[in-house]
């Protein structure tokens, strides 16, 4: 009788543990990985990676359909972070998808804008405001610099202007002389 009880109790324990482990395992394999990758991506939503936005690219990476070096706005640091998260080998940015550029924001030449709304439809983050046949303007704080609004503009009035430093965004410089050989080894640590 007691042995039977023990066997049953033991069985219950083992099954419970397996279930628990399975739930933990399945959790790490589901959406959270996509979210973790998505958290590293810059959310510029420019599509240079070949996917219609950062989240689809994150899904593709998680599914093994895309490589980790296809996002130019994320740059070298982004690739390193992804390599680190996924335990993969770092590789330089794939030039096919574009090159890393300093962050810019779009500026509409308000005198030339004809109010056609084509840029509004192109902007993935609703950073352009305006109505039909009225001048449009870009809300600088919201613009991610994806450049998607530039080609559709028939009046060619959108310029990408690099973001300049302000007193608020200025950073103290690294205190020692930057050695040219060092950056190759240092950022690896930084990603850790």
């Amino acid at each position: 009788m007691i042995t039977a009880l023990l066997v049953m109790a033991g069985l219950a324990l083992v099954l419970g543990a397996t279930l628990g482990a399975a739930s933990v395992l399945f959790k790490t394999q589901g959406d959270p990985l996509v979210d973790k990758i998505d958290a590293i991506l810059p959310q510029t939503q420019c599509g240079q990676c070949g996917y219609p936005g950062c989240k689809p690219y994150a899904t593709a990476i998680a599914g093994g359909d895309a490589d980790i070096n296809q996002c130019p706005p994320g740059g070298d640091e982004g690739v390193r972070k992804l390599a680190d998260l996924l335990g993969r080998e770092y590789k330089p940015l794939n030039a096919e998808h574009g090159v890393e550029k300093p962050k810019s924001v779009a500026v509409i030449d308000e005198a030339t804008c004809i109010g056609c709304t084509l840029c509004i439809q192109a902007c993935p983050v609703d950073a352009i405001v305006g109505a039909a046949k009225q001048m449009h303007t870009i809300v600088g704080d919201l613009c991610t610099g994806c450049e998607l609004c530039v080609p559709p503009c028939p009046a060619d009035c959108i310029d990408m202007v690099p973001v300049t430093e302000t007193v608020e965004s200025w950073k103290w410089r690294y205190p020692v002389f930057e050695l040219k050989v060092q950056p190759a080894t240092l950022p690896a640590k930084e990603a850790a």
Binding site: D38, L41, P42, Q43, T44, Q45, G53, C54, K55, P124, V125, D126, A127, L142, T144, S169, W170, K171, W172, R173, Y174, P175
Partner: peptide, 29 residues
Amino acid sequence: YYRYAKSEIWARERDKDAADSARERFEFR
């Protein structure tokens, strides 16, 4: 070194906030 590190951390936080807001706006759109 501390000033450098603090301002780098702030800059990263700003970038992260901007990315979060862009993600939200993108998803809403």
